[in-house]
Nucleic acid binder design. Structure first.
Lengths: 142, 142
DNA sequence: TACTAACAGTTAGATAGCTAACTATTGAGG
DNA sequence: CCTCAATAGTTAGCTATCTAACTGTTAGTA
């Protein structure tokens, strides 16, 4: 009996996650944090809900991740003057540095993941993921 | 800036996971449990470490999942007579039933995930996942 | 036989994800 | 204005995952 498709996704995703995790603690980051830093890097003074939407996780999850990142000095959290409900979030230099190291590590993992793939196959693979994502969410990447 | 490949994997995997989760509580199963039941279904009287290896999760994780499944009457847990270290695990009828409903639900999600894919594209997609998995783990699916 | 290493599983403590329920603020309509 | 709904974020409690440290059992070897 062939492995169900969803299990293939699970196993492959987890293999990637574990590979990325391996050296990540050396950079002072745990698995959930980088995606938040990445958003902050390109969106100054953003709100929590924007991160949640962009990263595909719930606001409650982001809230916890922000706690950890703030404790480790990776970002600053301020209340917006004009809207006391909202947060203004900024990545710090320390955060930028960790993000940079982490991104490079991810590039290496990507290279290993797609070893033996031709350029066309890589593009095809990404396109498949993109189509599947759209089928499931009615949204597009990014 | 294009979304990094690992984020594409993350988003797509999570979209799938959330879709599967949606109706799953109705079947009395939470997301980590089905893969364990699935292994038990095809491997009678197996040990915890076999499940862990086959499902690509750590023994400690399996141990917790077994607790929940046992509480819900989905499996039985016995100590092996000849080897008091080892467990003998069996899926119950209730477990079989939940697994069956869950599998059907997964098939529907797979169909939606791969809507618009030709037969060749589906095969290609699975092959890509398989190659990536092998690159990262030096193992093959199943 | 006795010591020690390997093995099977559990427990503890961490992060990450979810849903649901909550607080506090803002804004819209009568 | 005042009420009430919508919005932004947090908290609580659950599962799932990891690593590390632990208990108890088996087996190998001097």
């Amino acid at each position: 009996m062939e492995l169900p498709f969803h299990m293939m996704m699970f196993k492959t995703y987890h293999a990637q996650r574990n590979k990325i995790r391996q050296d990540m603690s050396a950079y002072g980051l745990s698995p959930g944090q980088p995606k938040v830093l990445r958003y902050l890097h390109s969106h100054e003074d953003c709100m929590l809900k924007d991160i949640a939407y962009n990263c595909d996780v719930e606001p409650a999850t982001v809230s916890k991740i922000l706690n950890n990142l703030e404790e480790n000095g990776m970002l600053t959290r301020e209340i917006v003057k004009d809207n006391k409900r909202a947060l203004s979030l900024r990545i710090t230099k320390k955060g930028e540095k960790a993000l940079d190291l982490w991104s490079k590590h991810c590039d290496e993992v990507e290279e290993k993941s797609l070893e033996g793939f031709s350029t066309e196959e890589k593009e095809q693979f990404k396109l498949f993921l993109s189509r599947m994502y759209q089928n499931l969410t009615d949204r597009t990447f990014e």
